[in-house]
Amino acid sequence: MQPTLRRILFIVILIAGLAWIGISANPADSDTAAAPQVGFSAPDFSLQSLDGQSYRLSDLHGQVVLVNLWATWCPPCRAEMPAIQKVYAEYQDQGLVVLGINSTVQDELSAVAPFVADYGLTFPILLDETGQVSSTYQLRSLPSSYFIDREGVIRYVVSGPMSEALLYARIEELLK
């Protein structure tokens, strides 16, 4: 290809690229639905806690919420529990809510209370006995955690165990 022709082609490509960006701007079909993914509104749910209280996620609007799905038989879930409890104790006064959702549908209900006592967990432990939340949140692995901001939007999703530093970093960002 002749150099002049090539340069013209490159310029045309760049102008077409700019036009394409302009056409793509401000899509009218942007998402509004809730979904268990970063950037979406957190899907709402209502569950009973281990001590019989009812919790609805949408009632916690305005607070930073960490939803953690776990099971007693899951080693990574056990590994991260002390860190979650520590961070919850430190930040609950600043507006952090932790909802520890036991995936009871794939766990032994009788094992939950001893687990909570063993780890000294003071945040609400909710029981997903029908698998409703596991299904709504398209749970693929345990543990799975969802960091939800004050507007009810999921900001981070973590599959697998979380370290203390990760919890501090993410929660401090959301509490700012």
């Binding site: 973590v158 979380m162 203390e164 990760l166 501090y168 970093a169 401090e172």
Partner: peptide
């Protein structure tokens, strides 16, 4: 880089620097 960007978190939990998780 992550640790430096979230220094306060790692000061509270320095051992997390060696955590094998990929989120940090």
């Amino acid at each position: 880089y992550y640790a430096l960007s979230h220094l306060a978190a790692f000061v509270k939990s320095p051992l997390s620097l060696f955590d094998i998780g990929v989120s940090l």
